[in-house]
Design a binder for these strands. Structure first.
Length: 162
DNA sequence: GCCAACGTTGGC
DNA sequence: GCCAACGTTGGC
């Protein structure tokens, strides 16, 4: 049985809510509160331990890729959907039939040079990258390996992807 | 199942 | 704060 090929992702977060520095501080974190079905389906069906993540800061100045993380463990039912005190509580979710998915992530590095969106948009090697598309609000996006590597280079990352 | 109205995202 | 681009909801 061949090992599953590692996949690459871009995950958006508003740094005022949860930033790469928060993840750096804790070392590991839970990517929860995703309440979009497309994003949910991607997390549930396609994410797996070992996948690499571009940590993207949105709704800030400037928006852009701020760091690198890794998915650890398998996707699981997002606990916040059961938590009545949480802003992400969903009364339609049950333990038997959870509606929303979370993943655990671990910190890899903060980019020496954040790669702002306008740089992502200008770089010809990143043609076709999802986050560049106008009106793309999806907070969980697949990233092609060549694009992932290019962003690492633009950010002077220590992380190497073979 | 259509689609209008409403809500949210997120760059600017 | 604006608003375009989506997503979701709910009446029909």
């Amino acid at each position: 049985m061949p090992r599953r090929t590692r996949k690459y992702w871009l995950l958006k977060s508003e740094p005022s809510e949860y930033s790469i520095d928060d993840l750096a501080k804790e070392g590991t974190g839970t990517w929860d509160g995703i309440r979009n079905y497309r994003a949910r389906n991607i997390m549930r069906d396609e994410m797996a331990a070992g996948d690499l993540v571009l940590f993207y800061h949105s709704s800030c100045k400037p928006p852009g890729v701020a760091g690198v993380a890794r998915i650890t463990g398998e996707p699981f039912a997002d606990p916040t959907q059961f938590d009545t005190a949480s802003p992400y509580y969903d009364p339609k979710s049950t333990r038997e039939q959870p509606r929303w998915i979370a993943v655990h992530v671990e910190f890899i590095e903060r980019l020496a040079d954040e790669v702002p969106l306008d740089v992502l948009k200008r770089d010809p090697e990143l043609d076709g990258m999802g986050v560049r598309a106008k009106g793309n609000r999806l907070s969980v996006q697949p990233v092609e390996k060549v694009h992932f590597r290019r962003v690492l280079r633009l950010g002077n990352a220590k992380t190497r992807v073979r």
